[in-house]
Design a protein around this nucleic acid. Sequence first.
DNA 1: TTACAGACTGACTAGTCGGTCTGTAAATAT
DNA 2: ATATTTACAGACCGACTAGTCAGTCTGTAA
Lengths: 180, 180
Amino acid sequence: MKDKKSTVIEVATRLFAEQGFDKTSVDNICKAAGVSKGLVYHHFNSKDEILQEIFVQTTKSMLEMNKSVPNEPPENQLVKLIENIFSQLEHDKLFFQLNLNLMFQPSTRKLLSHHIKERSAALLDSVKKIFDGIDPDQSTKLSFMFIAEIDGVSLDYLSVYENYPLKALKEHLINKYKNI
Amino acid sequence: MKDKKSTVIEVATRLFAEQGFDKTSVDNICKAAGVSKGLVYHHFNSKDEILQEIFVQTTKSMLEMNKSVPNEPPENQLVKLIENIFSQLEHDKLFFQLNLNLMFQPSTRKLLSHHIKERSAALLDSVKKIFDGIDPDQSTKLSFMFIAEIDGVSLDYLSVYENYPLKALKEHLINKYKNI
DNA sequence: TTACAGACTGACTAGTCGGTCTGTAAATAT
DNA sequence: ATATTTACAGACCGACTAGTCAGTCTGTAA
């Protein structure tokens, strides 16, 4: 049986994603999770702390999922990274929207800036290691551009375009990087 | 002399960008603009309406600034578009952050979805017209990819990377598209 | 049986929110 | 000169907010 603290975190994640952090009251969370307010403040010191715990957990699982496979040729690693990220993206749109929301909502952005920086730096680092095996002189620029391409497609996919050609753009990127 | 309605819009834009829509109260806006609540609700029916008016105004000025120059070769138009967008981006970071915030904050996203769709469609349309003059068979895919590259670089620049190599990536994109 | 930890409850506080209302002064029309 | 509309002020309202607190319940170990 699931303990109530985990339930609170799960429910809060869903509500933050659906309604936004500011529009979700602690009372909302309590009601949806079927627990009392006292319990929430027994496990967490503040509403902010719930959010931080969510972000730390998800950062951990994101880095875990995107860790590189060092014994393959770098081109394969890039392709796998692309496939992996886009598959996560399709599988959990709401979660990626939540992340964009948190990163650009001034209040939450300040609250999480440290974690966000860590997450970005970790991704850049692991991509740069791959590009070091392809073109060490330009690996920094190529890494930033690689990340920007993926982020851009993700952003546009998550924004409002109807019938966004995600699959076509994914294939485009895979073809570009598999023979770089 | 500036009328008070414009002052309210200017002040509200700044506060929404700095603090976020939800964390900015109507009283905050009144105080910062030096007007009363009665005035604000004389000119606007709701807080939401202030936001909508801001978004409509900025959409208009954005489309105005990025309208294409039809008598030039398409490659030049692409380069000019890149230079134009990145120069706006550097000039008014806060404003672009506000847009991302509004687009991914569930409450404001719903409120503005119509305007957001219009804006995206207009940009896609004008980019596609350029690519039609380069490679009509692939113009849709190339347009989406072009927009994604610019959006991705912008997104990463606005997020949390320190010392983001915006200039280098801008040059990279210009070189890529000037001889496409 | 007793003693204790800590998970849990829900009423409560102090304050903020968007929005409304009444009133007034100035501008415009008649 | 008088009537009507417009622009504005600020007191006020009820709903909602994050967070607190005194006390209850349950399980476990002595």
